[in-house]
Simulated assay, not measured.
Amino acid sequence: MFARSMHHSADLIEQHRTLSLVAELVDEGRIRTTATERLSPLDAEQLIAAHRIVESGRAIGKVVIARD
C-alpha cells in the first residue's frame, strides 16, 4: 500500500487517488475493515493483551490498539 511513498515514486499522486477511493468505498459501506478487536488506550497493558490475542492462533481479522 505504501510502496510508492517509501520509494519516492514519481507517480506519488496515485497513492493519494488510491487512498481517496478506499475512503470513499468505506464511507459508502461497500467495503469494510478487517479489524475485529479494538483495544484502548495505547499502553503496555494493551500491547500485551494484543500479543496474547494474536499468539493464541485464534484471532480472526486484525487487532487494533487505539490511542484514545
Rank of each mutant, 00 (worst) to 15 (best):
L47E: 11
D68C: 10
T18N: 12
A59Y: 01
L21E: 15
E28T: 07
I53N: 03
I65L: 07
H7G: 09
A66T: 11
L42S: 05
V63M: 06
E24N: 09
Q46E: 05
L21P: 00
T33C: 05
E55Y: 02
Q15C: 09
P41E: 00
R17F: 15
A44L: 11
D27W: 06
I13A: 15
L25R: 06
G29C: 03
A3G: 04
G29V: 03
E14F: 12
P41T: 02
D43G: 05
E24T: 10
A10G: 09
R32H: 14
A49S: 04
L25S: 04
T36Q: 07
T18R: 15
E14K: 14
L25F: 11
E37D: 13
A10C: 02
V22G: 05
A44R: 10
V64F: 10
S9V: 08
G29T: 04
I65F: 04
S56Q: 00
H16D: 15
D27T: 10
L47N: 06
S56T: 01
E24D: 14
A50D: 03
R67Q: 12
A10W: 08
G61W: 01
E37C: 02
R67S: 12
L39C: 02
L39K: 02
M6D: 13
E28G: 00
E28D: 10
L12F: 10
T18Q: 06
A3F: 13
V64E: 06
A66R: 07
L25P: 00
S9C: 13
L12E: 12
I48G: 00
I53H: 04
K62Q: 08
D11F: 12
I53D: 04
A50K: 00
M6G: 13
R52Y: 01
E37V: 15
R58W: 04
I65A: 02
E55W: 02
R17I: 15
I53L: 12
S20T: 14
L12A: 11
R17P: 02
E45V: 04
G61N: 04
